[in-house]
Simulated assay, not measured.
Amino acid sequence: MSNTPSNNQGDVKTLLEKIKDINTAMLSTADEDGSIRSRPMRHLEANEDGTIYFFTEYNSGKTDEIKNDSHVNLSYAKPGDQMYVSVSGKAQVYRDQQKIDELWNPAMKAWFPDGKDDPKIGILKVTIDKAEYWDSPSSAVVHLYGMVKAAITGEPAHPGENKKVNL
């Protein structure tokens, strides 16, 4: 399992490929007192330029936290596949009707009942600074083999891939 940092654009593509089918990310922000707050966010779009988009309520606690400190973390998990991703970056919240129209899908009506013209909708854009992912085979046999091999050879088990990506 490699965990050396990388600056390769191909690694960004790999990172985005890993999160593309995960619909929800946990967004963590810092409150005024420094405490960390996390909440689930519906993932809308991730681009190879290192930007990830969400809809959010334009005037909310999280937008206040982001205005105070733009550093955020996004956590993605697909436990059934033993795949986990942590993304650190900077966030901004803004209104852009053209981008709202571009990203809109009918499922968003659950949060914004007035549709894409709801004046409460804001765009939450996260620009990735760095990320790390862990992707392990989900097979119990593969994990058992790795543990047995580690016990016999004295080397640590490396059951999958771990990579750091820097933008």
Results as ranks from 00 to 15, higher is better:
His71Thr: 12
Thr51Arg: 08
Val85Ile: 15
Ile123Gly: 03
Arg37Ile: 07
Ile152Arg: 08
Tyr94Met: 11
Leu44Val: 04
Val85Met: 02
Asn23Ala: 11
Tyr76Trp: 01
Leu44Arg: 11
Val141Ala: 11
Gly160Pro: 05
Gly160Thr: 05
His71Ser: 13
Leu124Glu: 03
Asn47Ile: 03
Glu161Ala: 10
Asn73Tyr: 05
Pro119Gln: 08
Ala25Gln: 04
Leu124Ser: 03
Glu57Cys: 04
Ala131Met: 05
Val142Ser: 13
Lys62His: 08
Val126Ser: 02
Ile66Lys: 09
Gly122Arg: 02
Asp33Leu: 03
Pro40His: 11
Leu124Met: 11
Pro156Thr: 13
Val141Pro: 01
Val142Ile: 12
Asp118Gln: 08
Tyr53Leu: 07
Lys67His: 13
Asp135Glu: 14
Lys90Tyr: 12
Gly80Asp: 15
Trp111Cys: 06
Ala110His: 06
Ile152Trp: 09
Ser70Tyr: 05
Gly115Cys: 12
Glu48Ser: 11
Gly89Cys: 09
Ser35Val: 04
Met26Phe: 11
Thr29Gly: 06
Ala157Arg: 12
His43Cys: 00
Asp69Lys: 07
Ile152Asn: 01
Gly160Tyr: 08
Pro40Tyr: 07
His143Glu: 07
Asp49Pro: 07
Pro137Ile: 03
Ile36Thr: 12
His71Lys: 14
Met41Arg: 10
Ala110Met: 15
Thr127Pro: 03
Ile121Gln: 00
Met147Phe: 15
His143Trp: 14
Gly160His: 09
Asp96Glu: 06
Lys120Gln: 13
His158Trp: 03
Thr24Met: 08
His71Gly: 10
Asn47Glu: 14
Tyr94Trp: 05
Gln97Thr: 07
Ile66Gly: 02
Lys99Phe: 04
Lys90Ser: 10
Asp114Ile: 03
Gln82Ser: 15
Asp101Asn: 15
Gly154Cys: 07
Thr127Gln: 13
Gly146Thr: 09
Tyr76Gly: 13
Pro113His: 08
Lys149Gly: 03
Ala25Trp: 05
Val142Lys: 02
Ala91Phe: 02
Asn59Gly: 09
Ile152Thr: 12
Asn47Tyr: 06
Lys149Asn: 13
Val93Tyr: 01
